[in-house]
């Protein structure tokens, strides 16, 4: 509670959190207030007008509808990928860092291997094997390839905690590994894990956009994400023909999302590490 109070005192956190909440609200409740229609409704790249506030895309679809739908998809991919990556990373890091010995060595080697092999490369390789990719599949692929650096971070934290006095006391008390991990270590690194999660969501959203830009994003008629919108704009001349409405709104939405998450993360860093605050 005191933590939340401290966080609310940080203007960065308040701005970031409000921005993030607004995007979520638009994604969830937008369809209630705006008649979403992702069919062809006019000529390609029609300029913004009274009926279509942000104009039409290369297929003649309404950009406002596409953006609301895309925002929802990107958030969905980001959160699912974030949950998967954070969970795997935390489990591996926590276990390795706390256990030490052979288990730690094996897990560390595994982590270090995949930290240096670029995630983007693995993402491309896996995505090429699937001809049809649903949003959930894209989210899972991203999540299962993004856990490495969070495992490394959590491992360092857990290893540092391992030799603290209260852990030794708990052990003397006869607590088993699971109990020590859950009761005595997890609470200490929970704030760190939460920060990792925020970063994973943001990098998940960016990964989706990046993989879609290269043409390996979600497929199918209903697959509309911010990355797919940007890919269409890039591929079908939105960038070269002065059709600013083809990519400026989408870039703004994705930047706002990432910026909000970044603000939340940075402000939390400030609260947890008071020296940065002054």
């Amino acid at each position: 509670m005191k933590l939340l109070k401290n966080l609310l005192k940080s203007p960065m956190f308040v701005i970031g959190m409000s921005l993030f909440l607004v995007t979520i609200l638009i994604a969830i409740f937008g369809p209630l207030f705006y008649a979403i229609n992702t069919d062809r409704v006019g000529v390609p790249y029609d300029m913004p007008n009274a009926q279509f506030w942000l104009g039409l895309d290369n297929y003649g679809r309404d950009y406002v509808s596409l953006l609301i739908r895309g925002l929802g998809s990107s958030l969905y991919v980001g959160v699912i990928a974030g949950v998967i990556a954070t969970t795997i990373g935390t489990l591996i890091g926590l276990y390795g860092g706390f256990k030490g010995g052979l288990a730690d060595d094996i897990l560390s080697v595994l982590t270090n291997l995949f930290v240096v092999i670029p995630q983007f490369v693995i993402l491309i390789l896996i995505s090429t094997t699937f001809e049809k990719r649903s949003l959930a599949l894209v989210a899972m692929i991203i999540g299962f390839t993004a856990w490495t650096w969070s495992a490394r971070g959590v491992r360092a934290q857990a290893a540092a905690l391992k030799s603290k006095d209260h852990i030794s006391l708990a052990r003397l008390n006869g607590d088993n590994t699971l109990k020590v991990l859950v009761v005595h270590i997890l609470p200490y690194i929970l704030s760190y894990v939460f920060m990792v999660f925020i970063l994973q969501v943001s990098s998940g959203i960016l990964s989706e956009a990046a993989i879609s830009m290269i043409g390996l994003g979600p497929t199918g008629d209903n697959a509309i994400s911010l990355g797919v919108i940007l890919n269409d704009a890039n591929r079908y001349g939105g960038l070269s023909d002065k059709n600013w409405h083809a990519f400026i709104p989408a870039t703004c939405v994705i930047s706002a999302l990432v910026f909000a998450l970044y603000l939340i993360n940075t402000s939390m860093e400030g609260v947890f590490n008071p020296r940065l605050r002054k």
């Binding site: 960016l206 990046a210 940007l230 960038l239 070269s240 600013w244 990519f247 870039t251 990432v258 940075t266």
Partner: peptide, 30 residues
């Protein structure tokens, strides 16, 4: 610096194209 670093690479690239290449015409867009 905070604002800059929170932009994704490609988004920033697109904005640069829009402003300096398409609007101002100072640099080639592609």
């Amino acid at each position: 610096a905070l604002g800059l670093s929170s932009f994704p690479f490609f988004v920033f690239g697109m904005l640069l194209v829009a402003f300096f290449a398409l609007t101002l015409g100072w640099f080639p867009p592609m």
